[in-house]
Simulated scan of single mutants.
Amino acid sequence: MLILSKEDIRKVFSMKDAVDSVKQAFSIYSEGKSVVPLRVNIDVAKCGGQSLFMPGYVPDLDSVGIKIVSVFPKNVEKGIPSVPAQMILLDGTTGEVCCIMDGTYLTQLRTGAASGAATDVLASPDAKVAAIFGAGGQAICQLEALLAVRKLELVKVFALGDEAKKFVEAAKIQLKEYRVEIVAAESAEEALKDADIITAVTTSRKPVFPGNLVKKGAHVNGVGSYTREMQELDEYIVTKADKVFVDSKDAVIAEAGDFIQPMEKGLIDSNRINGELGEVILGKVKGRENDSEITLFKTVGIAVQDVVTANKIYKKALENGIGKVVEV
């Protein structure tokens, strides 16, 4: 059995690799070539967190896996990740565990890659300015994914308190090879100004930016909301966007407050969703059709992303002799 740390993964797997893997994962999912039950979400109310169990099976890759990921916001106060996780990968031909890898970094990587895939497929090819709402553990991979698929000139980051400024300083160092200007915005309105791409990656229970200020032709990624109580996207952008795409229609309708809350108010129904991103990639559904359309992508995360990405990481690690082999 192979054990892979975050650093092991970084040695063999780039963000571009992750975007390609997630595109494949979404295509597999939308073709019905995977088994992906809705995740089990256990509320750990005593500690203000949740633990999620996400199983999946991809027959064409002979790969089975389950990611155990928790969201404990108070972990930040303890100086440890707020989204700890492990990915357990099984050989689909024997049922044996073949790899355990850092699921926290895998989650950041594949979640960022989902936005990267959607941006690559749906955003204007000429996009130059991006806005990111949120500066937590997921934000750096979200930013890198945008930079991996578009040659951006300016990225504006907005978050509560002084978190944006701290994030910007770290991002300038970590992503210096992209040679992009990264700044902290003083307000949501400032962040939105001229933004061609907008990514929200928070656990907020109220909208983090006014949707009516999103400019024509922009692309929006809604990433953070994964329970019915969370709603980082306002009802204006959800109802008024020209086209809406999701990672999984079933999962978004079951889990995302961004859509559940306006549906419960009768403002939209499931037909508001034009299709899954995998269907756009496969050519079954049309994506952006002109420069003025506002496109919206909502992801809650599905296990096929983890299984496909983990499978690719595992194979690359074996090829390069990376990781620690243990006998159990």
Rank of each mutant, 00 (worst) to 15 (best):
M1R: 02
L4P: 01
F13T: 01
S21V: 03
I28G: 02
K33S: 15
K33P: 12
L38W: 11
R39A: 14
L52V: 01
M54Q: 07
P55A: 03
G56D: 06
G56T: 08
L61Y: 03
G65S: 06
K67N: 06
V69I: 15
V71H: 09
F72K: 06
K78W: 09
P84H: 09
P84K: 11
A85F: 10
A85K: 02
I88V: 11
D91C: 07
T94C: 11
P125V: 00
A127V: 00
V129P: 00
A131F: 05
F133T: 12
G136Y: 04
G137H: 14
G137A: 06
A145L: 02
L147W: 02
A148C: 11
A148E: 10
R150H: 15
K151F: 07
L154V: 06
E163A: 13
F167T: 05
A171V: 05
I173V: 15
Q174C: 14
E181K: 10
I182H: 00
A184D: 11
S187H: 03
A188S: 12
A188T: 14
D196G: 09
S204D: 07
S204G: 11
S204A: 09
V208G: 01
N212Q: 15
N212P: 10
K215R: 15
K215A: 01
G217K: 02
G224F: 02
S225R: 07
S225Y: 06
D234N: 05
D250L: 14
F259Q: 06
Q261E: 08
M263H: 12
L267Q: 13
D269N: 12
D269F: 10
N274R: 05
V280Y: 00
I281E: 00
K284C: 13
K286F: 04
R288I: 08
E289M: 13
V300D: 03
G301I: 04
I302D: 08
Q305C: 13
T309R: 04
K315M: 13
E319Q: 10
N320R: 09
